[in-house]
Amino acid sequence: MKEKTNLPVGEEAIRLKGWWRAHRFLLLRRLSQGFFLLLFLLGPWFGLWWVAGTLAGSRTFGLLPLTDPLVLAQSLAAGHWPELTALIGAAIVVMAYLLIGGRVYCSWVCPINPVTDAAHWLHVRLGLQKGWQPKRHTRLWLLGTVLAVSALTGSIAWEAINPITMLQRGLVFGMGFAWALVALVFLFDLLVSRRGWCGHLCPVGAFYGLLGTHSLLRVSAAGRAACDDCMDCFAVCPENQVIAPALRGKDGETPLILSPDCTNCGRCVDVCSVDVFAFTHRFDSHIDAPSSPPERSRHSAA
C-alpha cells in the first residue's frame, strides 16, 4: 500500500493545490443549493416574490414557468392533463437537464443533498459499517411504483411524502411532520445504509438519472495516466462505481464518465492532487499524455 493512501482524504490535494481548489466544487454546490432554496423562501419570509411556488412547480418574476417533469409525469399517469404553462415549464427543465446532466439536480439543487452528505460525513467519522446496501436499480422500481400509484389513485402520489417538498413547505409553514421525514432520511443514511437514500432509493434521482443519460456535460479522467492510486476520488464520490471505467480504461477506451448515475458534483476534481479529472463535454474523449511516469509504475519497477 502506498504511503499516500494512508493520508486523510483530500489532504494531499490541499497541500499541492491549496484549500480553495481542493474544495471549490463542494463550496459552489453548497452556495447553489442555498441560493435555490432561498429563492423560494424570499416570498414567504420577506415578501419578495421573485419566485413563487416550490421545486415541484414555480413561476419566476411572474413570467418564467418551471415544472418538475416528474410531477408532470405523475399528473399524466393520474389522468390529469396539465395546463399549457406546466407543459412549457417542464419542457424548459427537461432541455436544461438534457444538456447539463439529469443528476446535476441531485448535487447542485436538491436541498436534501446536504442532509445526506452530513449523514455520510458523520457515518465516516464514527467509523460505522457500510450497512445494508439495496440494489441500485431499486430506485428505478420505486420510480415505477410512484407512477403506478399515481395512476391508481388519480393523484400526484410522491408529492405527499417527498422529503424535498416537505422540507420546503416545513421551512415556510413550520416543520412539524416534515422534520420527521428529513430526520428519517438522515438516520437511514447514517445507521442503515451508507449513501443509501440518494444512491439506491430516491425515485427523483432515478428519474433525473434517466433524463441525463445522454447529457452534454461530463466529467473526464483525461489525466488518468498521472493517477497514483491514492483512491481519494473513490472515497468522496457518492456514486463511486462510475469512476473505474473511465479511470482504469484501457488504451483507446474513453476517459469520459458516461454513467447516468454520475451527479457531476465535482468532488473527484477537487480531491485529486494530480488533476486527473476535469469537466468537459461528451464529445471530448482526448487523453492527456503523462508528463512523468506515474507513481504506481515506479513502485512496480522497484
Rank of each mutant, 00 (worst) to 15 (best):
V124D: 15
L126C: 13
G127H: 05
G127A: 02
G127E: 04
L128W: 14
L128K: 05
Q129R: 07
K130I: 06
K130A: 11
K130H: 12
G131W: 01
G131S: 04
G131Q: 06
W132C: 02
Q133G: 07
Q133M: 06
R136K: 14
R136I: 07
T138R: 03
R139N: 09
L140H: 15
W141T: 08
W141I: 10
L142N: 07
L142K: 08
L143T: 04
L143N: 03
L143D: 00
L143I: 02
T145W: 12
A148R: 12
A148Y: 07
A148V: 13
V149D: 00
V149T: 07
S155T: 14
S155Y: 04
I156V: 13
A157P: 01
A157G: 02
W158M: 09
W158R: 03
E159S: 12
I161E: 07
I161V: 15
N162H: 08
P163C: 10
I164K: 04
L167K: 00
Q168E: 15
R169M: 09
G170A: 11
V172K: 12
V172D: 00
F173C: 08
M175T: 13
M175Y: 06
M175G: 15
A178I: 11
A180D: 15
L181Y: 06
A183R: 00
A183L: 10
L184K: 03
L184H: 04
F186Q: 03
L187Y: 06
F188H: 12
L190W: 05
L191A: 14
S193N: 14
S193Q: 10
R195K: 14
R195Y: 11
R195V: 01
G196F: 06
W197G: 02
C198G: 06
C198H: 15
C198V: 13
G199A: 12
L201I: 04
V204F: 00
G205A: 10
A206C: 07
A206E: 00
G209H: 01
G209E: 09
L210C: 09
L210W: 14
L210S: 01
L211Y: 05
G212E: 03
H214Q: 10
S215V: 04
S215H: 00
S215A: 15
L216Y: 14
L216H: 13
L217M: 11
R218D: 01
R218C: 05
R218I: 08
S220N: 09
S220L: 09
G223E: 07
R224Y: 06
A225Q: 14
D232S: 15
C233N: 11
A235S: 13
A235M: 11
V236H: 04
P238E: 03
P238N: 09
E239W: 00
N240W: 08
Q241W: 06
Q241R: 15
V242L: 03
I243T: 03
A244N: 05
A246Q: 04
A246P: 01
K250W: 01
K250N: 08
D251F: 09
D251K: 13
D251C: 10
E253S: 12
E253A: 14
E253H: 05
E253G: 12
E253F: 03
